[in-house]
Simulated assay, not measured.
Amino acid sequence: MNVVPNPVTVGPVKIGYGQPLALIAGPCVMEPGDLTRRIAARLVEICGELGVPLIFKASFDKANRTSGSSFRGPGLQGGMEVFRQVKAETGLPVTTDVHETIQAAPIAEVVDLLQVPAFLARQTDLLEAVAATGRAVNVKKGQFMAPWDMKNVVAKLQDFGAAGTLLTERGTTFGYGRLVNDMRAIPQMQETGAPVVFDATHSVQLPGGGEGGKTTAGQREMIPTLAKAAVAAGCDAVFLEVHPDPDKALSDGPNSLRLDDLAGLLRTLLRVREAVAG
């Protein structure tokens, strides 16, 4: 296997060895109107005040919703236009999910970091397609995978010539409708040579735990606990889905952080990071 680039460069942001704690954040899905752009602008203000490197995240299509009737987003063309506007207005690098091989190239024309969803972490053709774009790639560890299994994902991406590889821990399936986090996964995945991101919001999901099993529920109150533990365990970046009013969010509201709570949480995480580094 080729040497894994670390730190990984995404626009002006560097994630990995010797770098400050970074944040990947934004709404779960692009909602109608200008909400996505307003969230991005607020994130710039918060992270600018705290000196936290930021990558903006939003999904243009939630292709893995629990119910077929759930809101999915504006689609590829509409989503890329939103990202163009966000980048023009904020200067932020952006990231989004790639669900199919044919999406990789058009997404990479706009998006700086391509994200492979956890359910697709082992899909070789998809990994090859995202690596071929010349963009850095973030792969979420499958809920069904052990941390050490991700070495094979890293090997595939390096063999395909990926410009940079990030791995994200987002919980492991434990029984029916429950996820758990083993913080040992963070240093274990870092042994691959790739920087590791901790997804504190998807980790508190209760898959299929919503009304009639048609939606995903979540334990939003546990986000700070898991985020603090992950930073103490040495993660290189934190992933948070945020929304001004999570109870009204069109996707993943129960496990999204209230936007007004972000600054306080980041201050705490930075203190944890400083304590661990010291």
Rank of each mutant, 00 (worst) to 15 (best):
P7R: 00
G11A: 03
V13S: 08
I15F: 02
Q19F: 14
P20A: 09
L21M: 03
M30F: 07
L35R: 13
R37P: 10
A40L: 04
L43P: 11
V44N: 05
V44T: 08
I46T: 15
C47T: 15
G48Y: 13
E49W: 12
G51Y: 02
G51R: 01
A58Y: 14
S59N: 00
F60V: 12
A63T: 03
A63E: 06
A63S: 08
F71H: 11
G73A: 05
L76S: 04
L76H: 13
G78I: 02
G79A: 12
G79Q: 04
E81V: 14
P93A: 05
P93N: 02
P93K: 01
P93G: 02
T95G: 09
D97V: 13
V98P: 10
V98F: 09
E100C: 12
Q103R: 15
P106M: 04
P106L: 08
A108I: 03
E109N: 11
E109W: 14
P117C: 10
F119W: 10
L120P: 00
A121V: 08
Q123Y: 09
Q123R: 08
D125V: 03
V130K: 04
T133W: 01
V139P: 08
K141I: 10
G142T: 08
G142I: 12
Q143E: 12
D149E: 13
M150S: 05
V153E: 13
V153M: 06
A155F: 07
F160N: 07
F160G: 12
G161K: 01
G161P: 05
A162Y: 01
A162I: 11
G164I: 01
L166S: 02
L166T: 11
L167I: 09
T168V: 04
T172E: 10
T173L: 11
Y176S: 14
G177S: 03
R178M: 12
V180G: 07
I186M: 01
Q190M: 14
E191C: 03
T192M: 08
T192R: 09
A194P: 07
A200S: 09
A200R: 10
H202T: 07
L206K: 13
P207T: 11
G208P: 11
G209C: 10
G209I: 06
G213K: 10
K214I: 15
K214P: 07
T215N: 14
T216D: 12
P224R: 02
L226S: 00
D236P: 10
A237M: 08
F239S: 04
E241S: 00
H243P: 07
P244E: 11
S251R: 00
P254D: 13
S256K: 10
L257F: 13
L259H: 10
D261A: 14
L265R: 06
T268H: 14
R271S: 10
R273F: 02
E274W: 02
A277C: 11
A277T: 14
